[in-house]
Amino acid sequence: MPLLPFMGTTPTIDSNAWVAPGASVIGQVTLGPQSSVWYGCVLRGDVMPIVIGARSNIQDGSVVHVTRKLAATTIGDDVLVGHMAMIHGCTLMDRAFVGLGAIVMDGCVIEPDAMLAAGAMLTPGKRIPAGELWGGRPAVFMRRLTEAEIARNRAGAAGYVELARLHRESQA
């Protein structure tokens, strides 16, 4: 797994986190306990920091970056970022969900238990309130998430913690 320094700053990876072989983590990146970065991801904290909390996952092929002199990227605890997502200079609060292939642009905020649908594009500065589902290009409010959907999303984050553990052990 390439953990690459940039301008004297090396990524900080918790000892209980897992970064898949083939992922690239560069510069000012902090990865919290039991979080995971999957195959083919790029996390490039070269000009601003990227901070990822506990038990969050960045799934295969996703890119996480920042906006120079404007916006770091902060990802809270128990966050699901689906395959091939683009996360750029934004905030994903605890238990946020970003669907497969979705784009979250500069200055956006996804609040707790909120979801951006697969393939959606959240344009700069937009905010998804807690418990809402947004979708489309550009993304707009679709509906409130049900309690069952919120529970399923929360279980998904826990499932990725276990899956990362199994991958880590199988490669040891």
Score class of each variant (00 low, 15 high):
A85W: 02
L31M: 07
M121T: 15
M142S: 03
N153P: 06
G101P: 04
L92E: 05
A114M: 04
A148R: 12
A120C: 09
T10K: 10
T12A: 07
A151Q: 15
M84D: 04
D94L: 07
R55F: 07
A155N: 11
N16E: 15
A17L: 01
E111W: 05
D46T: 06
L92I: 11
V104F: 05
S24Q: 15
G136A: 12
T73K: 09
C41G: 07
L3T: 09
A148V: 11
H65V: 10
T146S: 11
R165W: 14
H83T: 01
M84A: 11
R168H: 12
I87A: 02
G61F: 04
N57P: 04
P21S: 07
L116G: 03
Y160W: 13
G156M: 12
G22W: 15
T9C: 01
M1I: 11
E111L: 04
D106A: 10
K126T: 07
G76P: 10
M142P: 00
A96M: 08
Y39N: 01
K69Y: 14
C41I: 11
G45W: 03
G156Q: 10
F141E: 04
I87T: 04
T10V: 10
T123Q: 08
G136C: 12
H167P: 02
L133R: 10
P124T: 06
A130R: 13
V47K: 01
E169W: 12
G8W: 05
M48A: 15
F6D: 05
V79W: 00
G22S: 13
S36V: 06
N16V: 08
P138H: 11
P49W: 13
Y39H: 10
P124W: 02
A120E: 04
A164W: 11
A172N: 14
V47F: 08
Q34T: 04
N57C: 10
N16C: 09
A96L: 09
A164K: 09
G125C: 12
L122A: 05
E132K: 14
I75D: 00
N16G: 08
C90M: 09
E132R: 13
Q28N: 12
W18P: 00
E169T: 09
A158I: 12
M84F: 08
V51W: 03
A72G: 04
E149L: 09
R44L: 03
A151P: 14
P33S: 11
H65F: 08
M48V: 03
V19C: 02
G156H: 06
P2D: 08
G156I: 02
H83P: 00
G61V: 02
G125W: 13
A54W: 10
T12S: 08
I150L: 03
P112N: 06
E147H: 09
Q171I: 12
